[in-house]
Design a protein around this nucleic acid. Sequence first.
DNA 1: ATGGTAGGTATCCTA
Length: 264
Amino acid sequence: MIRITTWNINSVRLRLGLVERLARELEPDVLCLQETKVADELFPREAVEAMGFSHVLVHGQRNYHGVAILSKLPLEEHQTHAWCGIDHPRHLSARLPGGIELHNLYVPSGGDEPDRERNPKFAHKLDFLAELAAAWQADGVGQRPTIAVGDFNIAPLETDVWSHKQLLDVVSHTPVEVAALDRLQASAGWIDAVRAIIPPEQKLYSWWSYRARDWQASNRGRRLDHVWVTAPIADKIQTAEVLTAARSWPQPSDHVPVTVDLAL
DNA sequence: ATGGTAGGTATCCTA
């Protein structure tokens, strides 16, 4: 059994204590982080090794973005990827034991205005998804046992947001983004591992804005963080859990960890 | 319709 967790940590250095708490409470074999916001040479490597993650891959820069894979299992043949000719550290992949390929993604947020002509960040988001879809399709990822996790910054289902109607024009849930994510999902026949366990009819969120006075009372969440697997391992999905409680941990990230167990 | 908070860093950008 492999337990894999994805978490947009929003500064790994500020929240090292929360990473340690997660490692202790959930004991994931592999922990994929996004928005680490740290240059590779400043990543707290020793600290996460002390938590039991003896295999650590980082792909970051100072201040913005950044992804990392912390693993108790060996990681091989890792690669970084840059899409749209923009060298943001947003995509890191590696191979787990048994030839399982793992992709850790931080999809561009897309800014505020859902208009590709007026908002270059929104165009970047859509182009990033389209380029990745083309690459995955050309690579035949869908034929191999592969896992893709991360902050995809899109809540695709009506039940992935607190109000489908009120978010139709809000970046993260617009029809054009959902269509782009659908094409990405189709590019390799990805299965949404979380929704394979938690029924799509059920409301489910992994992110709550910092701007709410009381995130729990208003509960205006969105499911932005995802775990996908390809067909060869679709029957291995055992459990899926969104650790909502982590949103109430001291000085929390605005995202909570999403965990899937695979019988691998 | 508006503005609300957070992090890293530098006095703003990104989310």
